[in-house]
Amino acid sequence: MQYFPKDAHHTMTAVINEKREIVHWYFDITLANLDVVVLPNREIFVLDEAELLNALNNEKITDDDYRLAKAELDKLLTTLTADNNDLLKRWEADFKTLHAVI
Rank of each mutant, 00 (worst) to 15 (best):
D64M: 10
R20N: 13
A55V: 04
K19A: 15
L52G: 13
K75I: 05
L88C: 05
T97P: 00
E49C: 01
D35V: 13
R67D: 15
K75G: 02
A55M: 10
D83F: 15
A93K: 11
E49R: 10
D94M: 04
I29A: 12
T13V: 06
A8V: 09
P40F: 02
K60P: 00
A14H: 04
N84G: 07
D35N: 15
I29C: 08
K6D: 09
L39D: 10
N58P: 00
L56Q: 08
D28C: 11
I29T: 01
L39G: 01
E59S: 08
L88V: 05
A71V: 02
E43L: 11
E72D: 12
D83M: 10
H24M: 09
Y66K: 09
I22E: 09
D74G: 09
R20Y: 14
N33I: 02
A14F: 05
T62C: 02
A100C: 01
L76C: 03
F45N: 06
L73E: 14
H99L: 11
T78Q: 14
I102Q: 13
Y26T: 07
L39I: 00
F45W: 05
N17I: 01
Q2T: 04
K70I: 14
A93Y: 06
L68N: 07
Q2Y: 15
Y26H: 15
H24N: 12
H10T: 00
D28A: 13
R67W: 07
L98Y: 15
T30F: 00
N33R: 14
H24K: 15
Q2G: 06
L80A: 02
L68A: 05
L56W: 09
D63G: 09
E43A: 14
L31Y: 11
I22D: 04
W91G: 00
K96Q: 14
P5M: 10
R20C: 09
V38T: 02
E21T: 03
D64K: 15
M12R: 06
Q2R: 15
D86Y: 08
W25A: 04
K96N: 06
